[in-house]
């Protein structure tokens, strides 16, 4: 599995993909610089809340979702499109191990780079407490692990249209459903990650009631269990599909 992870890391940093990844991680920094220099806050509390929410939105919401969509769907999808999957699946290594090796490499490198960018962003905005930074970082780890699992699943189902399926999932589930005050949001990763980040932060009592209602109606253990369950179910389903499915790399017969 380690050899698969190494191979996958090399793929992630090959050619234009490397620059895409670095651009993804660097984009928040000028935005945060702008907030720091141009932002007008009525009080230190408002500054603390708003910059924390900004950091959360960027690092635990947008960045993990987008980076995971780009790289999670490619775990199987890119190998099918490039016709290189044959090399991996005709080796003495179980298909689910190939998948897990690539998944762990994806999560590891994305978490490392996102955390690095988050730390730099935190240093730029300044107003966010260390506790809030840690809360956002934890949510980022959960988000990256879960989104990668979900997008790997989509990639293994919609091998050649994985990105379209990923965009559809983000739009329908993680944006529309997760922010709608309905029971359906319990089935999204985003809703539970918001709860985890809020519960771990020191923002209790600082948020306005309507925002408070959006972020947390479930307890932290339930939110953690829900996110882990979604991640585990997606991974198990991906392993099962990868193991049992024939992958057509050419237009047979």
């Amino acid at each position: 599995m380690f050899a698969v992870a190494q191979l996958h890391l090399r793929q992630m940093f090959a050619g234009s993909r490397r620059w895409l990844l670095l651009v993804c991680m660097a984009i928040p920094l000028p935005i945060l610089t702008l907030i720091r220099t141009q932002g007008e806050f009525r009080s230190p509390v408002e500054e603390q809340v708003q910059t924390s929410v900004f950091l959360y939105a960027i690092y635990a919401l947008a960045l993990p979702a987008l980076a995971s969509m780009l790289y999670g769907t490619s775990i199987i999808g890119a190998e099918v499109q490039n016709q290189t999957l044959t090399y991996l699946f005709t080796r003495p290594i179980a298909r689910w191990r190939v998948l897990m090796g690539k998944y762990l490499a994806n999560v590891g490198i994305l978490v490392a780079l996102t955390t690095l960018s988050l730390t730099i962003g935190w240093a730029i905005v300044g107003a966010v407490s260390a506790q809030n930074l840690a809360a956002i970082a934890v949510a980022t780890v959960f988000a990256t692990a879960t989104y990668n699992a979900v997008f790997a699943l989509l990639g293994s189902i919609f091998t050649r249209r994985a990105l379209i399926a990923g965009l559809a999932y983000l739009g329908v589930s993680e944006i529309a459903l997760a922010w709608a005050p309905t029971f359906g949001r319990n089935f999204t990763a985003q809703y539970h990650m918001r709860s985890i980040a809020f519960e771990l932060s020191d923002l209790e009592g600082m948020l306005r009631s309507e925002l408070r209602a959006l972020v947390s109606e479930v307890t932290t253990p339930v939110a953690v269990a829900s996110v882990l369950s979604l991640c585990a179910v997606a991974l198990i389903a991906t392993c099962w599909i990868t193991t049992s499915r024939e992958f057509a790399l050419t237009d047979d017969p």
Partner: peptide, 14 residues
């Protein structure tokens, strides 16, 4: 078993 596929696919960056 060693398998050499028909299609011209590689990790081209290597």
């Amino acid at each position: 078993i060693g398998f050499c596929p028909e299609y011209d696919a590689f990790y081209d960056f290597m």
